[in-house]
Simulated scan of single mutants.
Amino acid sequence: MKTYHLEFEQNLPIPLAEAWDFFSSPLNLATITPKEMKFKVTSNYTKDTKMYAGMIITYHVSPVFGIKMNWMTEITHVKEHDYFVDNQVFGPYALWHHQHHFIEIPGGVKMHDILDYAIPYSVLGRIANKVLVGKEVKKIFSYRTKAIDELFGKYKG
Rank of each mutant, 00 (worst) to 15 (best):
I14V: 15
E74R: 15
A53K: 07
T42M: 07
E7V: 05
H100G: 01
D21P: 02
D21V: 06
K50L: 13
E74D: 00
F141S: 07
V89H: 03
L27M: 06
Y155V: 02
V137H: 02
T33Q: 07
E136C: 08
K154E: 06
T76R: 05
V64I: 15
A147M: 10
F65Y: 15
Q10V: 13
F39V: 08
I14Y: 14
S142L: 12
V85Y: 03
F102S: 01
K35H: 09
Y93I: 09
E150G: 01
D86R: 08
K38L: 08
A19N: 02
P26H: 04
F102I: 10
S43G: 12
F84S: 01
I103C: 04
L95M: 13
H101E: 13
E104P: 00
S24P: 01
V64R: 08
G66R: 14
K135W: 10
M37V: 08
G54C: 13
I127C: 03
P15D: 14
F65H: 06
A94Y: 06
Y45E: 04
M69V: 13
A118R: 07
I148W: 02
Y52K: 15
P34K: 11
Y143M: 08
A128I: 02
K35R: 12
F152V: 07
A118V: 01
M72P: 12
M51E: 02
N70K: 15
A147R: 04
L29I: 14
M69N: 15
G125T: 06
L12I: 13
M1G: 14
V131S: 02
I140Y: 02
F141A: 09
Y83L: 06
N11D: 14
V123Q: 09
P15I: 09
T31N: 12
F39S: 08
K156Q: 09
K156D: 10
A128S: 09
D113V: 04
Q99C: 06
I140W: 00
I148G: 01
V89G: 04
G54D: 00
F152H: 02
F141I: 07
S122M: 07
K146H: 01
A94M: 04
W71P: 05
V123T: 08
K130Y: 10
M69I: 13
T42G: 03
H81P: 01
H81F: 10
F84D: 00
E9K: 07
D116K: 15
I148R: 00
R144D: 06
L124P: 05
S142R: 03
T49H: 06
F152I: 04
E18H: 12
Q88D: 03
K146F: 07
N28P: 08
V41I: 15
T33H: 11
E74C: 15
I114S: 01
G107Q: 02
T145N: 05
S24F: 11
H5S: 12
V89R: 11
F65C: 00
K138A: 14
I75E: 00
K2A: 13
P63R: 05
G153N: 04
F65E: 04
G157M: 02
L27F: 04
I67L: 08
K35P: 00
E104K: 14
I127R: 05
V137K: 03
I14R: 13
Y155Q: 01
S142V: 07
Q88C: 04
P34Y: 14
V133P: 12
